[in-house]
Simulated assay, not measured.
Amino acid sequence: MTSRLEWTTIDSADPRSLAEFWCGVLGYVVYEDKKGEVVEIGPDPEASDEQRLGDLRDGPAVASLAFVRVPEAKGGTKNRIHFEITPIDSDQGAELDRLLALGASKVDVGQGEGRSWVVLADPEGNEFCLARSLAPGEFDL
């Protein structure tokens, strides 16, 4: 018996704005915007609930994200959980430039120099990492 990750919920001061940033990063679209209080995004807006449920039951699925409005800002400490983003059709440098143009910023969480990943933060300060590229010619088995 196993479970599947369906949603990741992220507290946010401005759910719509943060959802738009992550749509740009991941190529997702907004599923539902509940008056700016909760904004849900994911990879396939045309999938029916039945299709999504079938996909979840069949195997690992790409998780959707939900951004929920909260009154308080993110605390100053490093996140205890974060996303690892991997480019699939460009090299890491080109993806870094794209993410910075979308509104990400480089951050130092004590990772040190010479790492194969880059630590970034979204517009509300949530850290995530840009890992190596999986693009053809960039990563081969």
Rank of each mutant, 00 (worst) to 15 (best):
E40P: 01
G54A: 15
D58W: 01
A63M: 12
E50C: 01
L26M: 14
V62F: 04
V70L: 09
A19S: 14
A135H: 11
Q111H: 11
I10L: 15
C129D: 11
S17N: 07
S105A: 14
G137M: 08
G54E: 12
A131S: 10
Y28V: 02
A135F: 10
V62D: 13
K34A: 11
V68D: 02
R16N: 02
K34I: 12
D122T: 07
P87I: 03
G112K: 13
Q92R: 14
R115N: 15
A47V: 00
C129F: 08
R115V: 13
G54H: 06
G137S: 03
V70R: 09
E127P: 01
D91R: 04
R52A: 12
G103K: 03
V107M: 06
V70Y: 06
A19V: 00
P87Q: 05
F21Y: 08
V25M: 07
K106L: 13
A101P: 01
Q92A: 03
E72T: 11
E95P: 02
F128N: 05
A63L: 10
L100V: 10
M1G: 13
D89W: 00
G27L: 00
D33M: 08
G54T: 13
I85P: 00
D33F: 09
P45E: 12
P123F: 01
R69M: 08
A66P: 10
R69N: 07
K106M: 13
S17D: 09
F67E: 06
D33Q: 12
R52L: 08
L18D: 08
E124K: 02
K35Y: 12
F83Y: 15
D91Q: 09
K74S: 00
R80S: 09
G76R: 10
S105V: 12
A101S: 15
Y31D: 00
R98N: 08
A13E: 12
P136K: 03
A94Y: 00
G110V: 10
K34P: 04
P15G: 02
T8I: 15
R69H: 14
L5D: 07
Y28L: 00
G110R: 11
D89N: 11
D122E: 05
P45T: 03
D108Y: 04
F139C: 06
D89F: 02
S12K: 03
S133E: 09
D122K: 01
P123C: 02
D44H: 11
L130D: 04
E127G: 00
V25R: 00
G93E: 15
W117G: 06
V39I: 06
E32D: 13
V62R: 10
K74V: 02
R4C: 07
T77G: 10
L65D: 04
K35V: 13
E37R: 12
L134T: 07
R52S: 10
A104K: 01
D97C: 03
E84H: 14
I88L: 01
E138H: 15
